[in-house]
Design a protein around this nucleic acid. Structure first.
Length: 812
RNA sequence: GGGCCCGUGGUGGAAUGGCUAACACGUCUGCCUUACACGCAGAAGAUUCUGAGUUCGAUUCUCAGCGGGCCCACCA
């Protein structure tokens, strides 16, 4: 007999990865005859950081399970994989490495850098047994991708969904550049709160004038005041309600006074002056109340439109203005307070909100439309849609889709220097790279300059369902694959990725982009905290693959559940996975040896007739297995991976191994009944392994010798076979569920025997003369069916039954 | 401050309007029993966050409180 392996042979991983790739096992081919149902997975393109993180491993495992399950269930599965390349972190890394460069050169370096990152991430995916279809790989930095992004925006522009407008952005007056949130840092500082006297004009039958007090930390923005707000629930200002009011600033500016629930009654006098722009709340209020916008500060930090104070730097201006107000007795109070402000993380300059020209997509005008489209989608779990609804109703201003960066999809427009007319390209010439180019303005004939900004990266990623289905590229392919079947993604990006995708794809096609959305949570560090570099608690997939193997990692992922819930990484689960892999190898060895001992003649043609002559105990476990498969079908339908792995591993380990194999041993090693024992164990093991290989695709091949027996055709991928279903396993159902329940008493008796023997310090197979079973008459009838198996397995000579209501066993 | 999620043995986590609340890891006891010590057999360990309510009965449903997480906003 051949020496069987003591441990898992890890070299088989590589072999099978190559086999699947070479034989195009997971390659999607559009079936022109329309025979098979198509299942399309709109899988997330990971940001190309260079390494997968555990969150990727978790979620990519999920939809890899689904892809394989659907494939083995008779679907034609289309499972492409993309890469989200253009992002700020890449720019930071590349700049760190190469320093400042011209935009053209910088872009090239970013692309080269990203290609390297993709290489490594792809390697990691393959080593985890993920099987996306690499023939349809896409990158958001590709020209073909740029074309579709630009086309999609151009179409939306023509439909009036995209517009250019002035909008405040965070601006550093020292570096003179726009900043994104990631460039900013919050720091506490102490400052002074000045309470300033304003005049109030109440327009009634006769105009009434009086004074009001308004507190502010930024008197230097007084010239840019556009409104004064009060809380309508504030008793002090109840006389304001429903009246037409105006406030007049110490500089003589007259602005309206409105009620607003966001005003904090406790702060200052309960009245707020809205300036353009003191902070982000001002931006919200300006849009909400449709207020005027005044350019208050220049790009290099000097006051603008401020009368005698114009041209002064912010700091100086503040001093002078306070001086002026004090001289005129307009300041009634000055108190020290602590506040938090945003600064630029590189130069520590406090940020200003300055107006600049930006591009927008209209998302605020009809939230109910986006919500109704989202409602057509099946959400797993259901509460996920609440994030989207809440966001859609809450969002205060339109989506700013332009970014002042380099490594991004260029915005395909030119702006006329003379008349500000927007010059658009034709659809045929896309992609275009307007940066540094000019076109003639068709309206006035002047030069129009190419837009230098690029798109927000969500503009890129919000059309992945269109990209993978070949929208505006291959009409037949598109019509067969769109809408996609499943969008898997993180719960924390519902309001970005899911929201923008639903909005954009619906605007462009009139159809929702996917039928189902599956939300996963994040993987936390084992201590329950967020994984972060600073805490040093990051777990790298590579070291886990090395230490535990891909199957164990995938079992960990399945055990982590499908709900959109954060979970600490669990070494317990992954070591369970590893032990489980080993258990399966050993069970395989046992069945294989039994097979060799008996001979080969029955190996691959197990018929229903063979099964019908089985012993009672064989039928009992085969039936149990049938019901397991049936139950697991429902779990698959609801993406309940946790239950799937739990149930199939428990059945395998604690029913098949702990009970069935033990009860079958005496028959295989002894004499008389080998055939039936082998048949049943063989059937169970083979079908079982097929249920498992979606979750752990390498386990069933972990020993070549063993698997050569079970899987006859080396050249055929096991993924071509069909997934065990209750329908095609119906021949294994010998008993009804009720009967099965009744027969469970057998297991109780077995447990009692084990307990008894253990209590007496005996081995389970220690020779025993007599077993006495105390039970009811009904039970006796059932136990008769298992009697032989019990006696032989526990090495007992004879059995006697005593009829009683109690259940007990004795051993002599 | 707003929206959503969650609070179950030492740890991680299932499930259910009602039989002794899964399972895994860990712990303790005994076994290297002819597939497996990455194993086998047995055992201990839970007032299911707190309080009130609905109910014949709640861990499960409702409300309040306390605590944690995610996303958003954050003080003129």
């Amino acid at each position: 007999m051949k020496e069987l392996p003591k441990a898992i042979d890890r070299s088989i991983e590589k072999k099978w990865q190559e086999f699947w790739e070479k034989n195009n096992v997971f390659t999607f081919v559009l079936d022109k005859k329309n025979n098979k149902k198509i299942f399309v997975i709109d899988s997330p393109p990971p940001f190309t950081s260079g390494n997968l993180h555990m969150g990727h491993v978790l979620s990519y495992s999920y939809f890899d399970f689904v892809a394989k399950y659907k494939k083995m269930s008779g679907w034609s599965v289309y499972f492409p994989q993309g890469w989200d390349c253009q992002g700020f972190p890449t720019e930071v890394e590349v700049e760190k490495k190469y320093g400042k460069k011209s935009p053209e050169e910088f872009r090239k370096l970013c692309i080269a850098w990203t290609e390297e990152c993709i290489k490594n991430m792809k390697r990691q995916m393959i080593s985890l047994g993920f099987c996306p279809d690499w023939n349809y790989e896409y990158k958001t930095m590709d020209k073909s991708y740029h074309r579709k992004v630009q086309l999609s925006v151009l179409r939306m522009y023509k439909n009036g969904q995209i517009y250019r407008a002035s909008h405040p952005v965070f601006w550093c007056v020292t570096c003179q550049s726009a900043l994104s949130k990631t460039d900013t840092e919050d720091i506490p500082r102490s400052t002074f709160l000045y309470t300033i006297v304003f005049d109030l004009e109440i327009q009634e039958k006769e105009n009434i004038k009086r004074q009001i007090h308004i507190a502010t930390t930024r008197p230097e923005l007084l010239h840019a005041i556009v409104a004064v707000l009060y809380n309508p629930n504030d008793e002090r200002y109840k006389e304001f309600r429903g009246k037409k009011l105006f406030a007049i600033s110490p500089f003589g500016r007259k602005v309206p006074v409105y009620p607003d629930l966001d005003v904090d009654k406790e702060f200052g006098s309960g009245l707020v002056m809205v300036c353009t722009f003191g902070d982000k709340q001002d931006v919200i209020w300006v849009y909400r109340h449709n207020l005027e916008q005044i350019q208050s500060i220049t790009k290099d930090g000097k006051l603008l439109n401020a009368g005698q104070f114009s041209g002064l730097p912010i700091g100086q201006a503040k001093e002078k203005i306070i001086e002026f107000l004090e001289k005129n007795n307009k300041i009634v109070k000055k108190e020290k307070i602590e506040q938090t402000i945003k600064i630029h993380d590189r130069c520590s300059t406090p940020l200003e909100l300055l107006n600049s020209w930006q591009w927008f997509a209209k998302i605020t005008d009809k939230p109910e439309k986006i919500i109704s489209v989202a409602k057509k989608i099946n959400w797993f779990p259901e509460f996920g849609i609440a994030h989207l609804i809440n966001w859609a109703n809450y969002v205060e201003w339109d989506w700013v889709i332009s970014r002042q960066r380099v490594f991004g999809t260029p915005i395909p427009f030119w702006i006329c220097k003379n008349c500000s007319n927007i010059v658009e390209p034709s659809e045929e010439e896309l992609p275009v790279y307007p940066f540094g180019t000019t076109r003639k303005c068709p309206k006035c004939g002047s030069d129009a300059e190419g837009e230098v900004s690029v798109f927000d990266c969500w503009v890129d990623s919000s059309i992945t369902p269109l990209i993978i289905t070949k929208w505006e590229e291959d009409q037949e392919f598109f019509s067969r694959t769109y809408p996609t079947s499943l969008r898997p993604q993180g719960v924390e990006i519902v309001r970005t990725w899911a929201f923008y995708t639903i909005y954009r794809c619906y605007e462009l096609t009139g159809i929702e982009p996917f039928k189902e959305i599956l939300l996963n949570g994040n993987v936390l560090a084992p201590d329950g905290k967020k994984m972060s570099k600073s805490l040093g608690n990051i777990i790298e997939p590579d070291s886990l693959i090395e230490q535990y193997g891909p199957d164990a990692i995938r079992i960990w992922a399945a055990l982590s559940g499908a709900m959109a819930k954060d979970r600490p990484f669990s070494y317990q689960d992954i070591s369970f996975g590893k032990n489980f892999v080993n258990k399966l190898l050993n069970a395989g060895k046992f069945v294989y040896q039994a097979h060799l001992k008996f001979g080969k003649e029955l190996s691959n043609n197990l018929k229903k007739e063979d099964l019908s002559s089985l012993r009672f105990i064989d039928k009992y476990y085969l039936t149990k297995f049938y019901y397991l498969v049936k139950k697991v079908e429902d779990y698959w339908a609801n993406y309940e991976f946790h239950h799937i792995i739990k149930d199939i591993s428990n059945f395998f380990w604690h029913e098949f191994c702990d009970y069935y194999i033990e009860f079958v041993k005496y028959r295989l090693y002894g004499q008389g009944d080998e055939l039936k024992a082998k048949q049943a164990s063989f059937v169970l093991f083979e079908i079982y392994s097929n249920t498992l290989l979606l979750l752990a695709p390498f386990i069933p091949f972990s020993s070549e010798e063993i698997w050569s027996v079970f899987k006859e055709n080396e050249n055929k991928s096991i993924f071509e076979e069909s997934y065990p279903s209750s329908q095609n396993l119906s021949s294994l159902k010998f008993f009804t569920k009720e009967e099965l329940e009744k027969y469970k008493i057998f297991e109780q008796i077995v447990d009692l025997i084990k307990k008894e023997k253990t209590a007496k310090g005996l081995k389970l197979t220690h020779p025993t003369a007599k077993l006495t079973i105390v039970c009811e008459e009904k039970t006796l009838e059932i136990l008769k069916n298992f009697e032989q198996d019990i006696l032989k397995t526990f090495n007992i000579l004879e059995v006697e039954y005593l009829i009683s209501k109690d259940l007990a066993v004795r051993i002599n």
